[in-house]
Simulated assay, not measured.
Amino acid sequence: MAVLMNEQIKASEVLLTGIDGEELGVMPRDEALALARRHKADLVCLSLMSSPPPCKLIGKGTAKEAALREKRNTDPGRTLKVKEIRLTVGIEDHDYDTKRRQADKLLTSGHPVQLAVRLQGPKQGAEAKALLERLSADLSASGKRATGIQVSGKGAAVQLNPLR
């Protein structure tokens, strides 16, 4: 949610709180803006869900910094999806190294990784578990297990989270 400040607030009246948290009551927006200028502060709208909207006087620049910090922390681009890497039980060494490097790259960039092994028959469960044990041990420098190795009917999987 964007922070509305100063002239961006369009309501004719606001419920104002002072710099030290004291209640100043309902007053016209223009009067609240003049008060903010006198105190060298910003008029910040706290919520648009009520009428008149509650606003607060906050020291100059503090509100913008807080809004930027909040945006950085809750940026939709920062939600990290779990990336899946699929393997088979009969994987060759070269392909294994490629998958390991791929998982390592994802983990060091901060993404959690789901390692999944597809099983062709019921007897491959132990082999799949051994493969996932080996791969998670090889990736221990960049990630740690979030779950244990889960072997079900048609597959085996383990999730690794980045260390940082």
Rank of each mutant, 00 (worst) to 15 (best):
V3A: 10
E7P: 06
Q8W: 02
I9E: 02
K10P: 06
A11T: 01
E13T: 07
G18Q: 06
G18N: 13
V26R: 04
R37M: 04
R38C: 05
H39L: 15
K40C: 02
K40M: 10
K40W: 12
A41N: 08
D42E: 14
L46A: 12
L46T: 02
S51K: 00
P53A: 05
I58L: 13
K60H: 15
G61Y: 05
G61V: 07
T62Q: 14
K64Y: 07
R69G: 10
N73H: 14
P76Q: 14
T79H: 12
L80M: 11
K81I: 09
R86L: 08
R86N: 09
V89W: 00
D93I: 02
D97F: 03
T98C: 00
A103P: 02
A103D: 08
L106H: 03
H111W: 14
V117Y: 05
R118H: 01
R118E: 00
P122Q: 13
P122S: 12
A126C: 02
A126W: 08
A126D: 04
A126M: 11
E127G: 08
A130T: 04
R134E: 13
R134G: 10
S140E: 03
S140G: 06
S140D: 03
S142A: 00
A146N: 09
A146S: 08
T147A: 02
T147C: 07
G148Y: 02
Q150L: 14
S152N: 12
K154E: 14
V158F: 13
V158R: 03
L160I: 05
N161S: 11
P162T: 12
L163F: 10
R164Y: 10
